[in-house]
Amino acid sequence: MTRVKFELPADDLARATRFYRDVFGWSALELPFGYVLVDADGDEVDVADADGGISPRTEFVRGPVLIIDVPSVDGAARRVVEAGGKLLNAKERVGDHGFSQYVEDTEGSVLCLWESVRDPREPLGEA
Rank of each mutant, 00 (worst) to 15 (best):
N89K: 04
S100T: 14
T58S: 15
A83R: 09
V65Y: 07
V110Q: 07
G108N: 10
V103E: 00
T2F: 13
I67M: 08
P32Y: 13
G42N: 08
V117F: 05
G98V: 14
A28I: 09
V47Y: 05
D51P: 06
L113Q: 05
E104Y: 12
L8T: 01
E30I: 05
D22F: 00
V70D: 10
D69C: 08
F6A: 13
T106A: 11
L37H: 09
F6D: 01
I67S: 01
R57V: 10
G125Y: 05
L37I: 10
S27W: 07
A127F: 06
I54S: 01
F24T: 11
V61L: 07
G84L: 11
G42H: 11
D43F: 06
Y102I: 10
D39R: 15
D12M: 03
F33K: 01
I54Y: 02
L111P: 02
S116E: 13
A28T: 11
Y35I: 12
S55I: 02
D51Y: 09
A10I: 02
E30C: 04
E115Q: 08
P56D: 06
C112Y: 05
S55R: 09
A50I: 13
V38W: 06
V23H: 06
E115N: 02
A16V: 08
G98M: 10
Y35N: 11
E7W: 00
R15Q: 14
V70L: 05
A76K: 03
D22R: 01
V45T: 06
K91S: 13
V103Y: 01
R21S: 12
V117Q: 04
D43Y: 07
V70F: 10
G125D: 03
T17M: 07
P64C: 13
G108P: 05
A77Q: 06
P123E: 14
A14Y: 03
V47I: 15
Y20F: 14
P64D: 07
D12S: 04
A40T: 14
Q101E: 10
V38Y: 08
V65E: 02
G95C: 00
L113T: 08
R121Q: 15
L87K: 13
E115T: 02
F24D: 05
L31Y: 04
R57Q: 12
V81K: 04
A83Y: 07
P120G: 00
L87E: 03
R121W: 07
V110P: 04
D105A: 11
G95V: 05
L113F: 06
P123T: 09
L111V: 15
R15N: 07
S109F: 14
D49Y: 05
D11F: 00
D22K: 00
E59A: 12
V103C: 02
I67F: 05
E82P: 06
A50L: 09
S116G: 14
R18W: 03
